[in-house]
Amino acid sequence: RGRRRRERAEPPAEDGGATSSSRAEKGEPPRDPVEQARAICLRLLTGTPRTRRQLADALRKREIPDEAAEEVLSRFEEVGLINDSAFAEAWVESRHHGRGLARRALARELRTKGVDATLIDAAVSRLDSEQEEDTARDLVARKLRATRGLDRDKRLRRLAGMLARKGYSEGMALRVVRQALEEEGEDTEYFGDEGF
């Protein structure tokens, strides 16, 4: 654990090897931009999958010329090292099961990562409404005990608010929370439908 922290504190040179100033001191010519772009992308892909736009942004930050970046990104896509479709599917699977996020929240996250809208639609459509509602029920069941002792309106708002932050629609959130509270013996007959 200690070693891992030290490694994070001392990031490798951004060009994937010796810095340009140390190369100049040694009398070496500056590295080819395509070679630099390739090294940067490989280093970034070693830790975790990334989208094409994430890699393009990283190359832009490191001032890699657009032509060199495009050449490397296209080649990496061609050989399957960059695959936004697979990235989106894995992201949906992981974040839905791991964090309980609904389709709306997952789509929002994928947009911020630069995934194309059609790929996002395809990935989130793999989650059906029934699966999403089952996950919402599990989330509420886990949080229900922590709300005991609160008045029922506060419990409803707190639990439905938690689901809303995870991207669940208001209608589904209210339905799932009411059901859970009713199963616990709460009288939900007078809960208004005005929202939370």
Rank of each mutant, 00 (worst) to 15 (best):
A9L: 13
L144I: 07
Y168S: 07
T48Q: 14
G47D: 11
S22C: 09
R23V: 01
R3E: 15
A122N: 05
L59H: 01
L139I: 14
G114E: 02
F87N: 00
R137C: 06
R108F: 13
E35Y: 07
I120R: 01
E194Y: 13
G171Y: 06
D84H: 02
R4K: 15
E28Q: 14
L174K: 01
K143D: 10
Q131Y: 04
D128C: 11
S74A: 12
S125P: 04
A160Q: 02
R23K: 10
A58G: 03
T19L: 13
R53M: 13
A24Q: 06
D66E: 15
Q131R: 14
G98D: 06
V177Q: 00
M162Q: 12
L101P: 00
L127E: 06
S20H: 08
R95M: 13
A180C: 02
I40V: 10
D151T: 04
E70W: 03
Q179L: 10
V34N: 05
R165Y: 03
F87D: 02
K26S: 09
C41P: 00
D153R: 10
R43W: 07
A117P: 06
R137P: 00
H97N: 15
V124T: 07
A9N: 08
D84Q: 00
D134C: 09
P30A: 10
A9G: 09
T118C: 00
G80T: 06
A117V: 10
G171V: 04
V177K: 00
T135A: 14
T112D: 12
V177C: 02
F191A: 03
A123E: 01
D128R: 08
E130A: 12
E132M: 03
L150E: 09
S20Y: 03
E130H: 08
R8S: 11
E78N: 14
A123W: 04
I64E: 05
F191H: 11
E70F: 06
D84S: 02
